[in-house]
Structure formats: structure tokens, C-alpha cells
Amino acid sequence: MEKITYDAMRNFILENELTDSVAISLHPDSFDELVMDYLDFNGNKIERPFEILGIEILQDNTGSVSKNKINTMNMVQ
């Protein structure tokens, strides 16, 4: 993905039919860009945990997710 935006993330979630059994992990730069776009779209309001269409969006702090890549993680144990 060229740049991870709010619209691109919504489309990714819908196209892949993701449910709340997964979370999305993003590179810190991509996460920051998405949060800024989300704030612009939602009038500087953000909820915790950060979710789009019920899917939790997390910042990867392990260094395993490349910039502008989306990593889905199974949340059901």
C-alpha cells in the first residue's frame, strides 16, 4: 500500500471482511499517519482503544512490520 489513510484502511477492512477476531498492527510511522488522518476525518476526536469499523489498530513496537504494510493478528485464543 502506498500510504495508509483512513479511507484505505476502511476499504482494506471491508474488502477482507475482517471481524473483531483480528487486530491490525502498523509500523509506527504508518500508525502516526493513520491517526492524523483519522483525527482530520473525525474532527480531532479519537477513541481508546483506537478502532476502525470495530477492528483495533495497534502500533508495532517490535520492528517486524514494514512501513506502509498491514499486519493482521488473530485476537482469539
Rank of each mutant, 00 (worst) to 15 (best):
N16L: 05
K69W: 04
L26S: 06
Y6I: 07
S30G: 13
T72N: 02
M36G: 11
P49Y: 13
I57Y: 00
L26Q: 01
I46Y: 12
F41A: 15
Y38F: 12
E56A: 02
T62D: 14
S66T: 09
L18S: 02
I4H: 03
L53D: 10
K69I: 02
M1I: 04
V76T: 11
E2A: 11
D7Q: 10
N11R: 09
I57P: 01
T5I: 09
E17P: 09
I57T: 01
E15Q: 09
T19E: 06
V22Y: 12
R48D: 06
E2K: 12
D29H: 07
G63N: 02
I55T: 02
T19N: 06
Q77H: 15
I55Y: 05
S21D: 11
F12Y: 13
I57V: 14
F12N: 03
S66L: 10
R10H: 03
K3P: 01
V22H: 10
N16D: 07
N11H: 06
F41Q: 14
Y38E: 05
I13G: 01
T62Q: 15
E17L: 13
R48S: 10
L26D: 00
Q59G: 08
E56V: 07
N44G: 08
Y38C: 02
K3R: 12
Y38V: 07
L34N: 02
D29N: 13
N71C: 12
S21P: 08
H27I: 02
D20E: 13
A8M: 13
I57H: 00
K45W: 15
A8W: 05
S21I: 13
F41W: 13
G43M: 08
A8T: 08
F31M: 10
L34H: 00
F50E: 04
Q77Y: 15
N74C: 03
D7H: 07
I70P: 00
I24M: 00
D40Q: 14
L53T: 09
I46S: 11
N11M: 12
H27R: 03
S21T: 15
L18A: 03
E17K: 14
I57L: 05
I4T: 04
A23E: 12
N68Q: 07
M1W: 04
N42C: 14
M36T: 14
S30M: 08
M75A: 06
E56Y: 05
E17V: 06
V22M: 15
R10S: 00
M1R: 06
L26I: 03
I46Q: 13
K45T: 15
V76I: 14
V76Y: 08
Q77V: 15
E15T: 08
L34Q: 00
D7T: 08
V22P: 01
F50G: 02
Q59I: 07
M9Y: 03
N11W: 02
I24V: 13
I70S: 00
I46T: 11
D60H: 02
S64I: 00
L53K: 09
G43R: 12
M1S: 07
A23L: 08
I46N: 09
S30I: 04
N74H: 08
S30C: 10
T62C: 14
T5P: 05
N42Y: 15
N16E: 06
E2T: 10
T5A: 06
F50C: 03
P49I: 13
D7Y: 05
M1E: 01
M75P: 09
K67V: 04
F31P: 04
S30P: 14
H27P: 03
T62V: 09
G63Y: 00
E47C: 10
T5W: 03
S25V: 00
